[in-house]
Design a protein around this nucleic acid. Structure first.
Lengths: 218, 218
DNA sequence: CGGCGCATTGAGGGCGGTCAATTGGTGTGG
DNA sequence: CCACACCAATTGACCGCCCTCAATGCGCCG
């Protein structure tokens, strides 16, 4: 059904906006390749990235119900995207309740990730925040087969990491050095290698329950 | 339909948990009276409140799709709650697509609020954070008729405010004093009076678009 | 080879944290 | 009617994490 809902695929260059704040898109986008992120810009020019997306993520499914974008989404790397018209989603909700519940689930998992991120930003020190983000990305990438042992490609700058965690670029850099010096991971080019998964999880206080990876009847 | 979906109402005392982390509730709860909040506890005992809920909020509708609670919800004040069994929600998704889309919308607005909160925690100074939270609560309470002019009741301690914003109680206190000394608001007992809505919004960089109060065909 | 973007480093400062004590309001019991 | 307990609000002192500004290093590409 979903495959049939895709009317076309599109590509975006790195740093290109896929959707802008204020837009009223008539379709939703499923990320096939590359990394994307949702963000908002404040009056003082500061940027907050509210979520990072990996292949398989339905990056703006929520705008099927929300209609007006309250944030923008950009490609962190070159991206390929499948386009699903709202019209088709509407028909699915009319005719396929089970699939509808699964799409709904998709957006509530999104919300669960937001909540965990809130805990991170609010109550974790920089070291734990960074560790947690990397734990989460590793698990999410593993699910879609984008990892190799304990390593994965992450085409993200330190400045973007800072915008995702509410930290300055400088402090992200120093915190990464701390993670490296503790032997928790290495990061060369865009290849992240987790050297000690157990301890990284401890530092991050990472518990993947919120990702809802367990199969359940829906 | 929704009214028919309510099988009973329940009451909770202040500080009582309505749902606990790890629970697999068989119903969802619609808040009729009082204030509630979602939260998580970290290993070090710190608490992060991820959202504050006012009358009219469907506090755990998302667990209809998520099944396992990844966080807890507690009553910040005495609460009255309407209980809707998942069984009934399931039937609604099978038979009433339009209502299903509206319920789905409810959870995506929830997500939109989370995203805005992320921006706050990540990129606002304490003064702006507090101002933003109060702007949002005012608007949300206004919608359900729980305000009077520019005032509303807010049965929340400064310690709880701190847990919602990722700040210490001490700093919440000092920041509130700053808001008062700038003539933006007063707060006596649990009565909050906004003295200068315009300037409060400026300090908060508040833009209510994310609350999706505009009527749209869904 | 020069330019550009990103990573890295250093110095200095401030926002917000922690610890601890005090105030004040409210309810309860004597 | 007062004494006392309890809880939230408030205040002070001190500290440290993280920010800002600015310079430097470094790899990649035309």
């Amino acid at each position: 059904m979903l495959e049939g809902a895709i009317v076309r695929t599109t590509a975006f260059q790195a740093d290109e906006d896929m959707v802008r704040e204020g837009d009223r898109p008539s379709d939703s986008k499923l990320l096939l390749e590359g990394f994307a992120a949702r963000y908002k810009i404040l009056h003082n020019g500061k940027r907050q990235i509210t979520s990072i997306h990996v292949p398989g993520d339905f990056v703006d499914l929520h705008n099927f119900t929300l209609k007006v974008m309250d944030h923008a989404i950009f490609a962190m790397s070159p991206c390929k995207v499948a386009v699903v018209p709202h019209e088709v989603l509407h028909r699915i909700t009319e005719e396929h309740p089970h699939l509808t519940r699964l799409l709904w689930l998709n957006t509530t998992i999104d919300g669960a990730i937001h909540r965990q991120t809130l805990v991170n930003l609010g109550r974790q020190a920089a070291l734990g925040q960074l560790a947690h983000l990397l734990c989460e990305l590793f698990v999410r990438l593993e699910v879609v087969g984008e990892t190799e042992d304990y390593s994965f490609r992450l085409p993200i700058t330190q400045s973007e990491l800072g915008d995702a965690l509410g930290l300055s670029t400088v402090h992200v850099n120093r915190t990464l050095q701390e993670l490296r010096s503790q032997g928790l991971l290495t990061w060369r080019g865009n290849l992240v290698v987790i050297e000690d998964w157990e301890r990284l999880c401890e530092v991050a206080q990472f518990d993947p329950v919120y990702l809802n990876l367990e199969h359940q009847p829906r």
